[in-house]
Design a protein around this nucleic acid. Structure first.
Lengths: 222, 222
DNA sequence: GCCTGCAACAAACGATTGTTTGACGGCCGA
DNA sequence: TCGGCCGTCAAACAATCGTTTGTTGCAGGC
């Protein structure tokens, strides 16, 4: 029997009143939203908690963003724009040569995501993203596809070039499973947690190495 | 720009009024809860939507379960008890012999989960589970660990026996990543969708094959 | 000096939330 | 036949939700 049920998921939580006493009102709202959406979900985090945590007035969200839903969209855009720009930048530096390896492309795919998940509140955003994936929502699917689908297509094309022996469906399957492993690792739910004696940058490097070797094996096995 | 924002995630939805006109009130509530929690999340699904879908009175949830949170817990228990019983049963049939293969153990681990995700409303429960994972909640973590941790430990021990060359941390990493791929595949968000011409059972078999071969490669690479 | 536009604020809006209440009716054992 | 439990029901509860309102202070342009 659970001593405490799942109730706390939707219970009010304690927060330091003004973790963000710097930056513009919009930025403070975005940062506070990222934290609270990660902790409580889109429905679970109320605008009152959110604006209190940001140290701004309740009406500021509707004033600056129009609605709570528009705010959610902006939280996505702010992080995903940066993530995908870095992914494409990293990819452009490793392709086009004859000796491009699978590890290179996977590194360009994985490392920007891992770095995002290790800086600042980026890890929290990864949980927001994992939540959104779990929502399994068609509108989100379209949003991601329309705005960031070209990134995925570019990586897929490169994987196809490096793995010519795989049929299209087979390749898609394997990329899908790699993405699942990556998402899971970044959301940080699994057994693996950073050891107390290990620095943040070392842990990032270890994670990247494990992921890349795992992905290489999963993608290129006969 | 999104034509429609993420708003619909929290908008009222249309449902057939009484999809479950059979079974006891408790069972009808549990089934309806599974469907609605998967579609809208724990916060997004209100007791009024839920009881209306089940065709029961609003107060029935609090009467039979005590609270909404207790109901959530029961939704978990009903499915996870069955899943883990089948996992342990499948595992017990493949271990203990000298010629147990990695494929056998992975099959015992993956197939019950996939079969659950393909029968009845089981696929919806998988989305509930994926959501819960994304919630990244400590109470949920403890609940899963206390109630079903022994299953995971048994599989881990078997993996360790079959992969003696791997250090403990290395093994945990790889199992973690396999779990991520499995969860992702079952939540059904990825690119791979069942083709219209493929029957449900064939698709299950294909998914199992892809997952097992991917997992074998990821677990046992040098 | 006056006016306009922006940003922030307290206060209130109607709607919806989970939960509780008390009454009603049918069933079963005594 | 009576009495008591059990499941169901409409109705109401206080609390909280996202959003809107009207007002205030403070800039910079004319």
């Amino acid at each position: 029997m659970l001593k405490r049920s799942f109730e706390h998921v939707r219970q009010p939580i304690k927060m330091t009143p003004h973790p963000n006493n710097v930056g513009t009102t919009k930025e403070r709202i975005l940062s506070a939203a990222e934290v609270l959406f990660a902790r409580r979900g889109f429905d679970g985090a109320s605008l009152r908690q959110l604006t209190a945590a940001a140290g701004v007035n309740l009406a500021a969200v509707n004033y600056h963003f129009g609605s709570k839903d528009k705010l959610i969209e902006q939280v996505f855009r702010r992080r995903l724009d940066a993530l995908n720009a870095r992914r494409l930048d990293a990819l452009s530096r490793v392709i086009g040569t004859d000796n491009t390896t699978l590890e290179d492309v996977l590194d360009a795919y994985i490392r920007p995501a891992l770095e995002l998940s290790h800086d600042d509140n980026g890890a929290l955003f990864m949980r927001v993203l994992a939540r959104a994936f779990a929502e399994h929502d068609d509108t989100l699917r379209h949003f991601l596809s329309e705005n960031y689908g070209h990134v995925m297509r570019q990586f897929t094309a490169e994987f196809a070039r490096l793995l010519p022996q795989l049929s299209k469906p087979e390749l898609y399957w394997r990329i899908d499973l790699v993405t699942g492993a990556l998402t899971h690792a970044m959301s940080g739910f699994g057994m693996i947690q950073r050891k107390s004696g290990v620095s943040e940058s070392v842990h990032l490097e270890q994670t990247a190495q494990h992921l890349i070797r795992f992905a290489v094996a999963g993608l290129s096995h006969p």
